[in-house]
Design a protein around this nucleic acid. Sequence first.
DNA 1: CAATCATATAACCTTTTGGTTATATATAGA
DNA 2: TCTATATATAACCAAAAGGTTATATGATTG
Lengths: 106, 106
Amino acid sequence: MPDVYRALGDPTRRRILSMLKDGNKSQKEIVEAFEISQPAIKKHLTILLEEEIISESVQGKYRLYSLNSTRLQLAYNEMLHYIEDLLDRQLVSLKNYVEKGEERDD
Amino acid sequence: MPDVYRALGDPTRRRILSMLKDGNKSQKEIVEAFEISQPAIKKHLTILLEEEIISESVQGKYRLYSLNSTRLQLAYNEMLHYIEDLLDRQLVSLKNYVEKGEERDD
DNA sequence: CAATCATATAACCTTTTGGTTATATATAGA
DNA sequence: TCTATATATAACCAAAAGGTTATATGATTG
């Protein structure tokens, strides 16, 4: 079972994911958006692929990366579950929070 | 700002948190519940304390640990919010999920 | 106060993580 | 086909993470 925490545990990887939110990106584009080397980026991408948080597709000489929404949503649910269980009855405003998050406010 | 991903990123630490869900525990009790050494547990506790996910209170020769629910919830909200932001419009059934989770089903 | 029990700390080890540079491979185009 | 460009891989490095054992400290109790 893939480890979401591992995937999201690094700030560079979170920045990569945020980039992909705005549409698929080639490895080159990602590399150019950071100050670290291409092999370093490649390693982060490999980890994100391993944890199935992103997907890869080959297009000519380019590699395109995209968010794996399904997996992210699973991760989300997994985390929700875990914290729900932890906080149990003390979980006061989570439903509230999500509702606010989606439709902004009451 | 403390790094919640760091605190929650380790399975042993998540297991410790799950233990504390069932009531406050002394360090000794926690150590006994795991197969690793007391100093190893102590290190995990220190990290959780640093990130303010748990609190400590001295009681005689014991150290009692308890969940810091507020902080824990903030931590998860931060992570969940990040994922929400990633999924943005694609986040279809989150509200649904939470509602079902809370009031069972339709 | 001596012994015991719970916790703290020091020193050390191995593996993982996140990075590097140098170089190989593969595809596209002139 | 030769060249330029995109990506992959190898070899290496330093620091952090997660663990160990040995030992010190501090509180409780016989």
